[in-house]
Design a protein around this nucleic acid. Structure first.
Lengths: 173, 173
DNA sequence: GGCAGATGCTTAACATCATAATTATCTCAT
DNA sequence: ATGAGATAATTATGATGTTAAGCATCTGCC
């Protein structure tokens, strides 16, 4: 029989932080997604191309951090981008475990073609929402992440981009 | 040959709103995920159970909106939750296209068991980050979503939870 | 009464997410 | 010189995300 609705001491969904962040992100991404689709790239692929355009050639682990993509995901996305001629990869001579990813002219061309569209969407969002509130939101998001990442004290922490568990980080690179 | 890094008029990643939202969400979810795993439910499954505990039995389309899950995803998740005895589903007599999802005693028990843990994590986050800043963040997130959803004027809009394209909504229900 | 158009939900297909395990390679202590 | 322990990237697996299409059902118009 169906359980009736009992009073459980939990906040309502309107107070769910992960949901609020997810909803806001979805509202933003809804603006970007059609343009990316028309260019034939996924959001994740675009992030990779942007990171390389912005920072120059990157090692895979650094690219994972920059793009906030998991390493297994990168291992599947990169061959596709390479096959399409957007990027190239090569192992380091000094450490064959590591590879460097570089943007190819074709990737640069796509960045040049789509970049202005993407920026235009940001400008529209800034106009609608207000640059001041946008700046405030960025600040709070950054502070929230910093607060929570600093407090993560889980040495058995999971694989994750952007913030590796301290206990597992041995030698500096 | 690898393209050299050229000056492309695009903001850096630190100014990418979707990324900032994603990073913040990941930092928050990292707190909740281990507990959910130990209970043997995924984040999405938990959202469904919470929505039903909070609102009582819901139709599938309403549940999709409440949980911010896409209908195809619900169609895959619900049978699993039903097989495990957490929920039950039944068609409406008045409209065989529609189904109502209800929490079963087993689902209620899981909510009762895990709810306090989940709330405890929220309290910890509120203590670390500050309730005032948290409230401010919620407010900005809600306003951002409202601003962007209100401005969505794409009648060919994609399937999405929470904000259907107006042009496709005909008869009120 | 019949049918066009719509709705609700499901399935298909392909994407990434998330975790665990594996393989190749490197470093350091013995 | 060797092996333990670590790192970098890949593969495996099962999850959801996302879009498109399909099927069953309903509604309203002619």
């Amino acid at each position: 029989m169906a359980a009736k609705r009992e009073k459980i001491p939990m906040r309502g969904f309107s107070q769910s932080l992960p949901m609020a962040l997810l909803r806001a992100r979805e509202a933003v991404m809804r603006r970007f997604r059609p343009g990316l689709r028309s260019r034939g790239v996924t959001e994740q692929q675009w992030r990779i191309l942007r990171a390389l355009a912005h920072s120059g050639p990157l090692e895979v682990t650094v690219l994972a951090e920059s793009t906030f993509l998991l390493a297994p995901s990168l291992s599947r996305i990169l061959p596709e981008l390479e096959a399409r001629g957007y990027i190239s990869r090569r192992q380091l001579d000094s450490d064959l475990r590591r590879a460097v990813v570089s943007l190819e002219p074709r990737g640069l061309k796509l960045i040049a073609a789509h970049g202005p569209d993407s920026e235009g969407i940001y400008e529209t969002i800034a106009r609608s929402f207000g640059q001041e509130r946008l700046d405030q939101l960025f600040k709070l998001l950054r502070e929230l992440e910093e607060t929570l990442v600093a407090e993560t004290s889980n040495p058995a922490g999971r694989q994750q981009p952007g913030a590796r568990p301290a206990a597992r980080r041995r030698a500096a690179r």
